[in-house]
């Protein structure tokens, strides 16, 4: 095969060598999640000062903002894996994309949900057609589309490739959608409340946000890797090396 050379460089691109590696890494990422989450939550609930205008309710942004960041970031990472899979025809790339999608969808959902919780006391409405909220909603739809397409195709390789094309089309569209929604939002002056005019943030809040973002990051990696391991087991169930695994024998 023509990509023999590449295989040396991308040793861990084969599911067989990636599986144990991921197994070793997962506890570390869980550990890091805890390391960042505990001080992050402490700042969220105790250290960060009560907001003069928004009261205690604003504390939800420590969940909301990192979740929104992650939902966008994971989509880009997912599309990158998908593109890599199409270009190099590596099996692991598709599995990574498939493993990341549910986490991304959950992040998008959490950001929508917490956005609604924040919006109720802030704007007096659960849902405002704010540009960011609307884009997040569409991003959530894109995740659902990706997951549904992969679930509907029986052949795993075909599912990977079809999903990859969808993810790439989606990643081209995300900025266009965001821009168009923003344009639409400015045209319709009705919803003039915007999340953008956040007051200058206190240093403690910035730290809290950073720690929570890192915690979400580590959590996402940990669950995505766990999911990828499960996908590898499922897809490679017929191979010898999977049958040799201790956890499979037991």
């Amino acid at each position: 095969m023509s990509n023999n050379k590449i295989i040396h460089w991308f040793k861990y691109a084969s599911p067989q060598s990636f599986y144990p590696l991921a197994g070793k890494l997962i506890p570390w990422f869980w550990g890091l999640t805890a390391v960042f989450l505990i001080p992050g939550l402490w700042i969220t609930f105790f250290a960060a000062p009560t907001d003069a205008q928004q009261g205690e309710g604003y504390r939800i942004i420590f969940i909301h903002v990192p979740a929104a960041w992650m939902s966008m970031f994971i989509y880009i990472v997912m599309a990158a894996w998908a593109g890599l899979g199409l270009a190099l025809n590596t099996r692991l790339s598709g599995m990574m994309a498939q493993g990341l999608a549910p986490t991304g969808a959950i992040m998008a959902f959490v950001s929508l949900w917490t956005g609604a919780f924040w919006g109720k006391p802030m704007w007096g409405a659960w849902w405002v057609w704010d540009a960011r909220l609307t884009s997040a909603l569409i991003l959530f739809f894109l995740y659902i589309g990706f997951i549904a397409l992969q679930a509907a195709i029986d052949d795993a390789r075909r599912a990977d490739k079809a999903g990859a094309i969808l993810a790439l089309v989606g990643v081209v569209n995300v900025p266009i959608i965001y821009f168009s929604v923003k344009w639409w939002n400015t045209l319709h002056q009705g919803a003039s409340v915007s999340l953008t005019k956040a007051p200058t943030m206190a240093a403690t809040m910035l730290w809290g946000m950073l720690l929570m973002a890192l915690a979400f990051w580590m959590y996402s990696i940990a669950v995505a890797l766990t999911r990828v391991r499960a996908i590898i087991l499922e897809r490679e169930a017929h191979t010898e090396w999977v049958k040799e695994l201790d956890e499979v024998k037991a």
Partner: peptide, 27 residues
């Protein structure tokens, strides 16, 4: 093309395509 020959293709098609239609709708 993505949903060609796929289970429940018709419904899935709208799920995939409609979000991508948003900019066209807005403009």
């Amino acid at each position: 093309a993505l949903t060609l020959g796929v289970r429940g293709g018709g419904v899935l098609l709208s799920l995939l395509v409609l979000p991508l239609y948003v900019p066209a709708l807005i403009f």
